[in-house]
Computed example of a mutant assay.
Amino acid sequence: MFSRERRTRLFDGCQAALVWLAVLASVVADREVERLALAAMAAVALAAAFVALCPAAPAPSLRDASPTTREDESHVL
């Protein structure tokens, strides 16, 4: 189970990866690279769909919540 914030960041990362892979597939002239980019797009789309459909983890109670450090805030994934 992923927290809501983590699901959002992962979904946004998948969207960014899909955009870059689409650009790669449309710019490259090599047919094999284009197929590989399209296959990677399918895999990323499946990962994004899984994250979107995965149930959210329950929010931690105030007693269980630990203080957030600056390192935690800068961590991307």
Rank of each mutant, 00 (worst) to 15 (best):
Q15F: 02
C54I: 06
R70T: 15
S74W: 00
V27W: 06
A17L: 07
P55C: 07
L53T: 10
L62W: 01
M41T: 00
L38P: 01
V51R: 02
W20H: 15
V76W: 14
E32W: 05
L10Q: 05
L18C: 12
A17T: 03
V28F: 03
R31V: 07
D30F: 03
E71G: 09
A37L: 02
L18I: 05
A45M: 09
A48W: 03
A29W: 02
R63K: 12
V33T: 13
D12P: 07
A57S: 07
D30I: 03
P58V: 08
A29L: 12
T69K: 04
R9P: 04
L21S: 04
A48D: 07
A65P: 12
R31G: 01
F50N: 14
A45P: 06
A22K: 12
V33R: 08
A45R: 04
R70Q: 15
H75Q: 08
D30Y: 03
L46W: 04
R63S: 09
L53M: 09
S26G: 07
A16H: 04
A43N: 14
V33S: 08
A43Y: 08
L24H: 02
P58G: 07
F2Q: 11
D72V: 01
L46C: 11
S74H: 05
D72S: 10
L53Y: 01
V51I: 15
L10A: 09
V27H: 05
L18F: 08
A25N: 02
V44Y: 03
L36T: 15
A56F: 04
T68W: 03
A65K: 15
R31T: 05
L53Q: 14
D64F: 08
A57P: 01
F11M: 09
R31N: 02
E71Q: 13
A16N: 06
E71R: 13
H75M: 10
F50L: 11
A65L: 14
R70E: 15
V23I: 15
L53R: 13
R6Y: 02
T8N: 13
R63I: 10
A48M: 11
A56I: 09
D64Q: 15
E73K: 09
V28P: 01
A52P: 00
V76F: 13
V23C: 01
H75E: 11
A29E: 13
L77V: 02
D72K: 08
P67Q: 02
A56V: 15
R9Y: 06
A48L: 01
F11S: 14
E34G: 09
